[in-house]
């Protein structure tokens, strides 16, 4: 196996004419780890991935793979492979020919190339499918061929562009786990683009969240979910009720006042300039209270839980409660309590 290499972006910028797709982006992907680029569509995550691949060339900054500066190298010169969103299997070539393509383009003999291809097809469990055309495979099988084709050259970095978006929901979880398994078994450096935050949290060593051409925040999945720094992040990763208000303090720790309602939040960090809290819907308790300031507006039974839409003085809030708790009917007045330490103080 070729040595997995780290990837480093140093102040990288990509402009298309007047439009900046990636602005001053710096990050590091350690060798042998799986890092996700996460963000809403148009945030620059795919451009970043293509910059790593060499399919786009940076207009500023520096890109390092291992200790080699690859900023000016084209895709064919970089030791990077990619699994495309559409899989991009060559429709006129059989499965084995698709996987052989890389070795052949790099000057291997047909025999060598075929041996390498068969080995990788066996690795991903597609032996026996060599002579099929891509159109004769299911979506999941096509995806595995795309992976085999990408790893056959044993690249120092492997890229995935939204690899699950063309699969049905059931298959997604399995393929997601397969990719993570493969990455850990072979010790690959993987950079993975997705817009699905659950997928990102599930597979990654580190998640880089992008918004509007810049990095919004990076960290481990737990970091991002539990300590989002901005409103955008709190809202984007997991579900959150954002409530504006003022922070204070009393003996119990931090307090938060939204309008005339005040909550004790417990001992949570409050950054400078914080002006709102993010409340995860499953960390809010509902108590029947005829004098409460809140009204249940709607109840939805969603199988594993009940979702309440609660009318608060500052707007609507989403609260999710487990089924084992007694259902509360719409129109009932309630009071809210926030789990101590569960609220997240955010800025912006």
């Amino acid at each position: 196996m070729a040595k997995a290499a780290s990837v480093e972006f140093i102040g990288v910028e990509k402009k298309y004419g007047q439009v900046t797709a990636v602005r001053d982006v710096s990050f590091r992907v350690e060798a042998g780890t799986l890092v996700t680029l996460l963000g809403p569509s148009g945030c620059g995550k795919t451009t970043t991935l293509r910059l790593v691949a060499g399919l786009e060339l940076a207009t500023g900054g520096k890109i390092m793979i291992g200790d080699q500066d690859v900023t000016a190298l084209g895709a064919a010169e970089r030791d990077v492979s990619m699994v495309f969103q559409s899989y991009a299997l060559f429709p006129h070539m059989s499965v084995v020919e698709n996987v052989m393509y890389g070795p052949l383009a790099s000057g291997a003999s047909r025999k060598e190339a075929e041996a390498m291809a068969r080995e990788k097809l066996a690795l991903i469990g597609l032996s026996g499918f060599e002579k099929r055309l891509p159109s004769e495979l299911s979506g999941g099988q096509q995806q595995r061929v795309a992976v085999a084709r990408a790893i056959v050259l044993e690249p120092s970095v492997l890229l995935f562009d939204e690899p699950l978006s063309n699969l049905d929901a059931k298959l997604r979880r399995k393929v997601r786990d397969d990719i993570r398994d493969l990455q850990q078994r072979l010790g690959l450096t993987v950079l993975y683009v997705t817009h699905d935050q659950q997928e990102a949290l599930a597979v990654s060593d580190k998640v880089i969240v992008m918004d509007n051409a810049v990095i919004a925040q990076e960290g481990t999945p737990a970091d991002l979910y539990e300590r989002p720094r901005t409103r955008f992040l709190a809202d984007f990763i997991g579900e959150a009720n954002i409530v504006e208000g003022r922070f204070g303090a009393d003996a119990g720790g931090v307090t938060f006042a939204a309008g005339s309602t005040s909550f004790g939040l417990g001992d949570i960090p409050v950054p400078e300039g914080a002006s709102a809290v993010a409340l995860r819907p499953d960390r809010i308790q509902l108590t029947l209270d005829p004098a409460g300031a809140f009204t249940i507006h709607r109840v939805a039974y969603v199988g594993h839980a009940r979702e309440y839409l609660v009318t608060a003085p500052w707007g609507e809030m989403l609260v999710i409660r487990p089924l084992r708790e007694r259902a509360i009917a719409a129109g009932t007045r309630v009071s809210l309590e926030i789990d101590l330490g569960a609220a997240i103080a955010i800025s912006g």
Binding site: A76, M82, A88, Y101, A105, S106
Partner: peptide, 27 residues
Amino acid sequence: VDRSLDEASTTLGARTGTTVRRVTLPL
């Protein structure tokens, strides 16, 4: 023809001439 077919060929180390000859023209 999806552009990503060309790009897949390029990321597999094929230069443009090879990509055109082996992927684009056959399609």
